[in-house]
């Protein structure tokens, strides 16, 4: 039984990581059709914000839950105002511009912090299941992923902000005619997506080394999860995370982590070939 529990934790942990790193991207892509290639760098900025704040003496949970999301959210709003808003509807140009931003952020952070790895440790220990021990922080990450997915769903489904955002994305002219400024909705949505990404980055800070180039580790997986999920934000991203996370982790346990990663990519290729619109292009189309 112990090994079953350990394997289950590992699989859920992988799914949670995928869901966490892709949720902000899913909002920005799903709502605004903007491919944000600077997503990995938003994660990186969140992680750095959390580490810098913690090292300056702020409580680690405060820096994770408050400082990192607010900081990256502000960066997101600035980016939207200065760059993205000129490029709506030009998907290829937004992709290139956000790639430029990604390089720019890496350059700025390398200039400030250098190329040395920094780290913090999470203030929680390990627990044991029979012969196996697992870190409590893994369980926390799983919980964070569930909570953020639920949070996105509830905000989109049950709040006025979510209603306005969904309405604007469906028909910006109609929303505008009803007295809502689409510009503002876009800015807020982009900022919220960025804030969520900053939170994910902060959560990942204790389990991954901090480098200005760390975004590259996650960007591909985040993209594959979002694209594999399709247009429906919460259902799509969660189902893709479950699928890819399971494939990755089961293969990893059976072989090596490298083969696990390759299996994830191959699974993504096959999925996209079979379902060019992602999972939600075929299933759960009426989800959210």
């Amino acid at each position: 039984m112990d090994i079953v529990g350990s394997v289950a934790v590992q699989i859920f942990y992988m799914i949670a990581i995928l869901a966490l790193v892709s949720s902000g991207l899913a909002i920005i892509f799903g709502m605004m059709r903007v491919i944000n290639l600077a997503h990995g760098e938003f994660l990186m900025l969140g992680a750095y914000a959390a580490v810098v704040a913690t090292k300056a003496g702020v409580n680690i949970w405060i820096s994770m839950f408050i400082i990192a999301p607010i900081f990256v959210g502000i960066v997101g709003v600035i980016v939207e105002r200065l760059v993205i808003r000129f490029l709506y509807g030009r998907m290829m140009d937004t992709l290139l511009a956000t790639w430029a931003l990604s390089l720019l952020f890496i350059g700025v952070m390398t200039t400030i912090f250098g190329n040395a790895t920094q780290s913090i440790t999470a203030p929680v220990g390990t627990f044991s299941m029979g012969d196996y021990s697992e870190s409590v922080y893994r369980l926390l990450i799983i919980a964070f992923a569930v909570v953020s997915m639920l949070g996105i769903y509830l905000v989109l489904r049950h709040t006025r902000l979510g209603l306005i955002a969904r309405g604007t994305m469906q028909n910006a002219d109609m929303a505008s005619a009803l007295g809502i400024s689409p510009q503002r909705v876009y800015t807020i949505t982009f900022g919220l997506g960025a804030a969520l990404t900053g939170f994910a980055g902060a959560v990942l800070a204790p389990v991954s080394g901090l480098l200005p180039t760390m975004g590259a580790t996650y960007i591909a997986k985040a993209f594959i999860t979002v694209i594999g999920g399709g247009q429906v934000i919460v259902t799509g991203t969660s189902s893709a995370a479950v699928l890819f996370g399971t494939v990755n982790q089961v293969t990893t346990i059976l072989t090596t982590p490298v083969i696990g990663t390759v299996a994830l990519f191959v699974a993504a290729l096959i999925l996209l070939r079979a379902l060019p619109q992602g999972i939600t292009g075929r299933f759960f189309r009426r989800g959210l």
């Binding site: 290139l96 511009a97 720019l104 952020f105 890496i106």
Partner: peptide
Amino acid sequence: TVDVNLVLGAILLIFVLAVP
């Protein structure tokens, strides 16, 4: 003094926005 990524990123951004 200046990071390569910084310069490449800035060049790309300027081109996408101003000289597409």
